[in-house]
């Protein structure tokens, strides 16, 4: 190709009106800053983590700027397979995932309880929602003291009924459940607010029609109300699953992975501890753990995207 093959802009007829060019350039310009940021900090690092998971790396560079990483292939993953702490963490992740879903019925229950119009109900709703606004760090601290074996309020209450003191966070068999219970507190509040909004939009005519047909209580809830709450349930499900898999703050604050070795750890926590612990940085191994967690999460992300894609088609 020579230069002469290029069309002469002055000679070429204006094929498109100005308007057309603007609507094709404008979206690119509007997207660019956000997309750039997002690509650099989110999209590219995902691929880099995959890459790092095939290396043995302590996170350091040599003085000349080259990385000290050594390629080890699948070694990190093989090591993972034989690592009991990894399996403990994965198993705890499963517990989180299942038990965290209790936030959905619990949130629905509270929403039904509060969906009334008595004086001051607005304030009640806000105060019930309150735990969600507090940071998980503070929730963690609050529950650590709540569970404390010497002065914790829970043992005070148990003592009142004659039950002995329990050291919830000190017992590796129940510590995880104690942390999940703490996590359920804000998560239930979140689900509650989703359902309260959903209940607000329930079609009153259908409820009346249901009443005329003799539907009451649970039957009404199951056949008339819940189908109308489906969008709220879907969002509650998505945020709860994501929240369960992301659990990190509470574990770090309440037990720091203990008692013992990683008895309350989950993948998110184990990855962090491996990659940035005081016993040396193992970035490659940490990345391998992160990849596993990412793959699990990807199942839910794919499901969510598929749902969204279907809705988009429907519009």
């Amino acid at each position: 190709m020579t230069v002469t093959a290029l069309p002469d802009p002055a000679a070429a007829p204006r094929r498109r009106p100005r308007r057309f060019r603007q609507t094709s350039v404008a979206p690119i310009l509007f997207l660019l800053p956000g997309l750039l940021f997002f690509a650099v900090y989110v999209i590219i690092p995902i691929f880099q983590s995959f890459q790092i998971s095939f290396y043995d790396w302590n996170g350091l560079d040599r003085p000349d700027g080259t990385s000290t990483a050594v390629y080890v292939g699948m070694e990190n993953y093989r090591y993972l397979w034989d690592d009991p702490d990894f399996w403990t963490s994965l198993w705890n992740n499963a517990k989180w995932l299942v038990l965290y879903l209790l936030a959905i019925p619990a949130g629905l229950f509270i929403a039904l309880f509060l969906n009334q119009t008595v004086t001051g109900i607005r304030l009640y709703k806000s105060l019930f929602f309150f735990p969600f606004v507090i940071s998980q760090v503070v929730v963690g601290l609050v529950f650590t003291w709540f569970y404390d074996p010497t002065f914790g309020l829970i043992n005070e209450i148990l003592g009142f009924f004659g039950a002995g003191p329990v050291n919830i966070l000190g017992d590796r068999h129940i510590a995880t459940y104690g942390i999940i219970a703490a996590g359920l507190w804000p998560q239930t509040a979140y689900c509650m607010i989703l359902y309260l909004t959903g209940l607000n939009a329930v079609d009153p005519e259908q409820v009346e029609a249901g009443r005329l047909d003799g539907a009451k209580g649970l039957r009404m809830l199951w056949y008339v109300i819940l189908p109308q709450l489906r969008p709220a349930t879907f969002i509650a499900f998505v945020v709860t699953v994501i929240g369960a898999l992301r659990s990190f703050d509470l574990i770090s604050i309440m037990t720091d992975g203990g008692p013992g070795f990683y008895s309350t750890s989950v993948l998110a926590f184990y990855m962090w501890d491996v990659a940035l612990s005081e016993f040396g940085f193992r970035m490659g191994y940490g990345s391998a753990i992160a990849v596993v967690l990412f793959m699990i999460m990807m199942v839910y992300i794919a499901y969510f995207l598929w749902k969204m894609w279907r809705d988009e088609r429907g519009v």
């Binding site: 999209i43 998110a268 969510f304």
Partner: peptide
């Protein structure tokens, strides 16, 4: 969808890079 998916990824997959 890329924005949506990225918003849900676990933090740990981004941590090291």
């Amino acid at each position: 969808f890329m924005f949506v998916a990225g918003n849900f990824v676990p933090f740990q997959i981004l941590m090291v890079p």
